[in-house]
Design a protein around this nucleic acid. Structure first.
Length: 591
RNA sequence: GGCCCGGUAGUUCAAUGGAUAGAAUAGGAGUUUCCUAAACUCUAGAUACAAGUUCGAUUCUUGUCCGGGCUACCA
């Protein structure tokens, strides 16, 4: 049991014995003691004063004394300042944690909970390459799946590819008009970029045609409908839905180019999926549900034949779920896909990693599922994340301010190389080892930069800051790990040589933080928030660096101290590596 | 208009209702005969505004001001 819970339980027992009253964990708080006071953990007494009719000093003294007397192996002392009871935890407790876990690669991870959680993330469109926003989505999704796994759940990572629709037809039309049979191979272009370029060409041409029509005297909104390239695109969509062979052929070919490009990027950033759904296979789903909803009177049919649900009683609007022509809308597909996921995997929870612009949509989806009485409705969770913006404002594809994922990764690698060369610490690395190191460092910097922020909040991506390898960054933590490993290459710890010697402040500070690792994994899981982990690992690294510069391991004051510090090094390196792994970040042995 | 989210040092981010609001970066000053200076130490600097609840509010409530998102028979 974690120390905080142990303290709380001990306090509950003492209060019961002292005053005959039973309290629960919600009745009072245990905090870490602020560094400026003596002690390790603090019981906040204020909320107990009234029910016990005690002054802070009286209660603090009685409770403190009782706690120390009845738990001599846990507490070695206490002091009271105002309403705060500061407790000092016995060194032996921290030493025990250390020797029990320094070799344990599963340290911090929870027992199997026998439940299955699906995480859907990434969800790209096949008409353009991935950009910075997708990176936040991918890093978040992958990390949250790992964190959930560490919390004892089985996970299924999925991706829904938006591979059909008018936007795809735009690239296809543009390729037909301007492609002259070019392919990614013939132009030596990455497939997703190749197709994305035609999407841009479509928009250029479309804009031109609209302008010409407007000059010719047509109104703008009419011109937008009448532009020949748009009409051709709409016709193509109809042809696609009718399954016209030439269109299907072109569609398949262009999508295959995109997938080749995506695969390369996914591999590079470490995204992987247990199951990929394609919208072209799922867009007709959900129609049966509409019929069932009508039968249950959850949905109503209007005179023109369209089907609706009235959510006004829940503070939302009326939403359409089927058009008057009988075709399904976006939300209907989502209901269908949710059902399919449940049928295929029998999942207990389904997490959707989707931007906060779709908060309303996801609310509606879950509410409809609930009203339909679907068994998986309560398990739907929208992991809503904020948009990534630039210091200059929002990214806009039309203004060309979108940060391309591949370009960004290339740039980051260059910076990693440049900085590594400047420092000149790994001159004996082979070319492959160097390349690998640059990858580890650049991806580490980028992932950490995007994951260290609360997912719910929008964030500013500052290109200059993101390539900084100092301070609150991935490489800072990676560097700390490499430093520790450098010590451990020289000598490994022997646990049987460990003797209690009295902990110095920085030794104890580190152990207190390391003891907290399981609680941090749990918190990151329940709150669906990897930033807690990022923050935590950073603090571990920071404390270790202070420790490192203050106390020598190899030249410790005594052999006991040396063994103790070697064990601290082991556990710190393990926790750093383990925690970073949960963020999808690798740590090098040397850098 | 309606609904939702956010406003904390110059900047980017923290803080289950608890002690003197933490970091990083930018600024100022230092540290290397000693395990990797991608490091460490010191210094200066912030809760948009106004009420309310509370022993105690960055946190909860209300209002004001300022940003952002959603509000399609698009996906």
């Amino acid at each position: 049991m974690a120390i905080q819970q142990q303290i709380q339980q001990a306090a509950i027992n003492s209060l019961e014995q002292l005053y005959g009253k039973t309290f629960t964990t919600k009745d009072f708080q245990i905090n870490k003691t602020k560094p400026e006071f003596e002690g390790d953990y603090t019981i906040v007494l204020f909320s107990l004063l009234k029910p016990l009719s005690k002054s802070p000093d009286a209660l603090g003294n009685e409770l403190g004394k009782h706690l120390v007397d009845t738990n001599p192996s846990l507490f070695t002392g206490f002091n009271i300042i105002k309403g705060f009871l500061n407790l000092t935890v016995a060194d032996a407790y921290w030493i025990d944690i250390l020797s029990a876990n320094y070799y344990n690669s599963n340290y911090g991870k929870a027992e199997n909970k026998q439940q299955k959680v699906m995480v859907e993330y990434s969800s790209p469109n096949t008409n353009k390459p991935l950009h910075l926003g997708h990176l936040r989505n991918n890093f978040l999704g992958w990390s949250i799946a790992e964190i959930i796994k560490a919390n004892g759940y089985e996970t299924v990572k999925t991706c829904i590819v938006n591979d059909r629709g008018i936007h795809i037809c735009k690239s296809m039309i543009a390729w037909q008009l301007f492609g002259n049979g070019a392919t990614p191979q013939s132009t030596n272009t990455k497939g997703d970029h190749f197709v994305g370029d035609y999407y841009v060409k479509f928009n250029d041409e479309y804009k031109k045609q609209v302008e010409e029509l407007v000059v010719g005297g047509m109104k703008k909104d009419e011109a937008e409908k009448e532009a020949p390239i748009m009409k051709a695109t709409q016709q193509m969509l109809l042809d696609w839905e009718a399954g016209k062979p030439e269109v299907m052929q072109l569609w398949k070919e262009m999508n295959s180019w995109v997938y080749a490009g995506f695969d390369e990027t996914y591999k590079r950033i470490g995204s992987d999926f247990d199951k990929t759904y394609y919208e072209s296979n799922t867009y007709l789903l959900g129609k049966k549900t509409v019929q069932e909803g009508l039968a249950k009177n959850v949905f109503v049919q209007k005179e023109d034949g369209s089907v609706w649900i009235d959510l006004t009683a829940d503070g939302l609007d009326e939403k359409i779920v089927q058009r008057k022509d009988g075709t399904s809308v976006y939300i209907t597909q989502d209901i269908g896909l949710a059902q399919q996921k449940y049928d295929e995997y029998n999942i207990d929870q389904s997490i959707y990693v989707i931007g906060d612009e779709q908060n309303y949509h996801m609310k509606v989806l879950q509410l409809i599922c609930k009203k339909l009485g679907l068994p998986y409705a309560d398990g739907i969770f929208h992991l809503s994340y904020g948009m990534v913006e630039l210091p200059t404002g929002k990214m806009k594809s039309r203004e060309g301010t979108v940060v391309d994922a591949d370009d960004l990764l290339d740039e980051m690698e260059k910076v990693a190389q440049q900085k590594t060369e400047e420092l000149g610490k790994v001159k004996d690395f082979t070319a492959e080892e160097l390349k690998e190191l640059y990858k580890i460092l650049s991806l580490g910097a980028l992932k950490f930069y995007l994951l260290r922020v609360d997912p719910k909040k929008k964030m500013i991506f500052n290109p200059e800051e993101s390539i900084d390898f100092h301070g609150y960054t991935g490489p800072f933590i990676q560097y700390t790990h490499a430093r520790i490993k450098s010590i451990l290459r020289k000598e490994t710890a022997q646990a049987d040589k460990l003797q209690f010697t009295g902990l110095l402040k920085l030794e104890k500070d580190l152990l207190i933080e390391l003891e907290n690792y399981p609680a941090v994994i749990a918190q990151a899981g329940t709150e669906h928030d990897p930033s807690h982990l990022a923050n935590y690992i950073y603090n571990i690294a920071k404390t270790f660096n202070s420790f490192y510069s203050e106390h020598s391991v190899m030249n410790a004051e005594s052999n006991e101290k040396k063994q103790l510090r070697l064990l601290i090094c082991e556990l710190t390196a393990n926790v750093i590596a383990s925690g970073m792994q949960l963020l999808g970040i690798r740590v090098p042995e040397r850098m």
